[in-house]
Design a protein around this nucleic acid. Structure first.
Length: 206
DNA sequence: TGAGTGATTGACT
DNA sequence: GTCAATCACTCAT
């Protein structure tokens, strides 16, 4: 697997590597969100392995009316109040799953929504799961990328730094990052917490 | 127990 | 540009 990442981060995870990433993710979601651009999301299932480079993210915090955690802990959002680096997967609009990386300190209730990926590995499997052929449309949206990678509620709460199936790996940081207002929400629309890699053709909306 | 909502997508006018 | 699909969750009875 050629994921084009620094040697020290390639292959088996070391304890130092995990601690280092955990520290990074322990910062506020609005700080973590741009840092996750360039990271690789890997999902290994019985059908095969799929991986994509993160090209678009959004930050959600507990004091944020647009966040699921705004009104405190509930059965649905409890993962977001846990250890940073875990996956918060939720089901929405009756048909779509969205993937978040829990950020901040324990009980902060912060997370980073992964809005778009650039397909890296397992593109044929992604095409099969999505039922389309165009690579550009496989993972250019939060609901699309979970479908392409085969991510659902079963993956909710997985530790992305230790799990053997759903993993987050450090990659090459992007050269230029664009920061804009978040999209698709009705509350706190003015917070500039959407980040994407400049000129990436794989983002959900320009 | 029931109504309203939604961090979306794809099809259609 | 508009709108339906479809259901877990939340909040108000």
């Amino acid at each position: 697997m050629n994921l084009n990442m620094p040697n020290k981060l390639r292959g088996r995870r070391s304890k130092d590597n995990i601690d280092q990433l955990r520290q990074l993710l322990m910062q506020d979601a609005s700080v973590v969100a741009p840092l996750l651009l360039g990271f690789i999301v890997v999902h290994r299932t019985n059908d095969g392995l799929c991986a994509g480079r993160i090209v678009e993210t959004e930050a959600y915090q507990a004091d944020d009316p647009a966040s699921h955690t705004h009104k405190g802990v509930s059965p649905r959002n409890r993962v977001m109040f846990g250890e940073p680096g875990h996956a918060y997967v939720y089901f929405t609009y009756g048909m779509h799953y969205c993937l978040n990386v829990v950020a901040g300190k324990i009980e902060d209730g912060q997370g980073v929504l992964i809005r778009a990926l650039e397909p890296v590995e397992g593109i044929e499997l992604m095409k099969e799961r999505r039922g389309i052929e165009e690579v550009i449309r496989l993972t250019n949206g939060p609901g699309k990328l979970t479908q392409a990678l085969g991510i659902g509620l079963k993956q909710n709460g997985k530790d992305l730094l230790r799990d053997k199936h759903l993993m987050l790996l450090a990659g090459v940081p992007p050269k230029e990052v664009v920061q804009t207002k978040r999209i698709g929400i009705t509350r706190a629309v003015d917070r500039p917490w959407r980040f994407y890699i400049k000129n990436s053709p794989f983002i959900s909306k320009p």
